[in-house]
Write a protein that binds this DNA or RNA. Structure first.
Lengths: 334, 334
DNA sequence: CGACGCCGGGCAATCGATTACCTCGCGGCG
DNA sequence: CGCCGCGAGGTAATCGATTGCCCGGCGTCG
């Protein structure tokens, strides 16, 4: 466990630590012969630089922090994978944290990332207002870009999906299928995208002449369990709507499960739609109609914006709403 | 973006940096009055300690690294969540990396974690032999525990599931259901658990008089896509076995999808089983019979072993094979 | 032939927090 | 009254790598 330091490498070769550092990093011209000797010695001693010391001196860590509300939600894991992939090209690493949908935990993660001097942060904030303090503080300390969700009143870039367009796609599809009444199952209105999805649902359903079923606006959380429960509530009501629109795929999968258990035939008795197009959306019973978020592009843009922010100090803020696409499957009769 | 250092806090209060450090960490007795002043000043200046500098001096980071083969596989995300949860109690953080099933990337992640001086590493190694070098090097540098999979020839603790017992549960269940022939769809034999599962399948199926279907040992990778493809191969064969046993739930979900698309009725024409019991196993068409891994316990044990390893230097190695439990659902007629 | 520039390489400051060791002052005790 | 112990707090070394500045030597050019 004894770590070998640059000093020992230098001693073995008979040069100064400065030369070893330069030889290994290639920062300044060092004679090829010495470089080779240093390489040799480092190899033999099993030397690897102490990243902490290096980070302290350079005040860079070549690491980007990412904070997501949940690490078990496949939508976020796809996003994480995309970011990691995008970072790889620039030889940087990802430090991933989960805030577990808890603003306090989120604040703690952010403090920790800042303390660890990550070069930048990619965050999907938990809450539209309760996350504001921590996020804007962090944004003041280092480059930060929000993805998917955002908190208001923070000076930072944002990349996500065009929620309004997504709801338009979904509702126009449902209208074509002859839907006259619909329910909307979502999370509590605590995040930007949730609000936009609800607003989009209301706007486009009104425009298309689709009525909201009585008791049909169900707000809980983004989870399979909530989808199950919400559908149970709808089943307990006087009559079913023509369609249930869900604010994410997990909710929709829960809804489908309860339908199957309760003898409701999808799509014959009821149409169901999701949001995100997670890999499991194609595997449910029946396969789920949903809108696909361009996760790869979102991730790539986020990394690009971060790189921009590191280079230039002051820049105009970017807010990129990328376009979703409709994926029709059997849950709407596709 | 200008970071405020301990020196500025000290200057403002009119004490030395040593006192500020002690006041904030509570390491040594400092008069309450001074502690309060320091708190005040730190608050006003927005001071937060530089974790890098602190880590360099203390050579501890209060951070544990975790490396998993895939971050999109729900089994691993559950494991990660469990580890994060377990760490929380001791006030430590998790630094998560994905090796993407690539031994080279895995080695890089390990080097990076060691360079960053994490206090310990939890890893589920990619490959039974190709991971050996990097893992055993890392295990020599700092406390390391393997979870789920392990590489041979490395001195480290391991926690996972009793694969043999799991296959026994599954095959006894299938035997009770009258299964006489079965296929086994798994990953290539590149990891310990894969080997153990295949061995367990062979041993217990032989013991129970279940024959391996011709061309029924299909080795690919742990993914939905491979499950789909493997089932297509089985469909292309002369006849179907009574059951398809899969080495993880993702594979099984792919198998089920192809069955649905190909008109094979599960469980009427064919029984299908998975492994892990990921959340989506209950949502497929039909819901999947599988064995549940005790992820929470695995994670908790891993963290406990790590803590032990940090405290005591030399200890006997632990290899904990925890017991799985059978979860019967409709895919075997449950 | 002298001066200048360039190149390889060394010295030592530096990043920011922690901490071993020291000092000072005060109270108690022999 | 002198000495000791103790608690509060300061001084400065330390963690390990990086890098600005400097030096000596050699090649080149006027």
């Amino acid at each position: 466990m004894a770590r070998v330091t640059i000093r020992e490498v230098a001693a073995r070769v008979g040069v100064s630590t400065a030369t070893v550092s330069r030889a290994l990093s290639g920062a300044k011209r060092v004679s090829p012969a010495v470089v080779e000797q240093v390489r040799q010695a480092a190899e033999e001693l099993g030397y690897s630089a102490n990243g902490i010391a290096s980070a302290l001196r350079r005040s860079r860590t070549d690491t980007v922090g990412m904070v997501v509300p949940s690490i078990t939600n496949p939508f976020f894991t796809s996003l994480v994978e995309g970011v990691e992939h995008a970072l790889q090209d620039s030889g940087r690493q990802l430090f991933l944290c989960s805030s577990r949908s808890d603003p306090a935990l989120e604040a703690q993660r952010l403090r920790s990332l800042v303390a660890r001097q990550v070069d930048g942060i990619v965050i999907s904030p938990v809450h539209g207002t309760e996350s504001t303090g921590a996020v804007s503080w962090a944004a003041g300390e280092l480059p930060l870009v929000q993805v998917d969700r955002y908190v208001t009143g923070v000076e930072s870039d944002w990349v996500g999906v065009d929620d309004d367009a997504a709801l338009r796609l979904l509702l126009e599809h449902l209208a074509e299928r002859g839907v006259r009444t619909a329910a909307f199952v979502s999370s509590e209105l605590t995040s930007s995208s949730t609000e936009l999805r609800v607003a989009g649902f209301q706007e486009h359903s009104a425009r298309l002449g689709i009525g909201l079923a009585p008791g049909g606006m169900l707000l809980g959380e983004y989870s399979i369990e909530w989808g199950r429960e919400a559908m149970q509530r709808l089943l307990a009501g006087p009559s079913l709507p023509d369609a249930v629109t869900c604010a994410d795929d997990l909710i929709a999968l829960g809804v489908l499960q309860t339908c199957a258990a309760g003898g409701v035939r999808v799509p014959d008795d009821l149409l169901v739609t999701g949001f995100d197009d997670i890999p499991f959306a194609a595997l449910s019973d029946p396969p789920l109609t949903t809108v696909r978020q361009p996760q790869v592009e979102i991730a790539a843009e986020a990394v690009r914006l971060l790189a921009d922010a590191e280079r230039a100090g002051e820049r105009p803020l970017s807010r990129l709403a990328l376009q979703p696409s409709l994926v029709v499957r059997a849950s709407t009769g596709g």
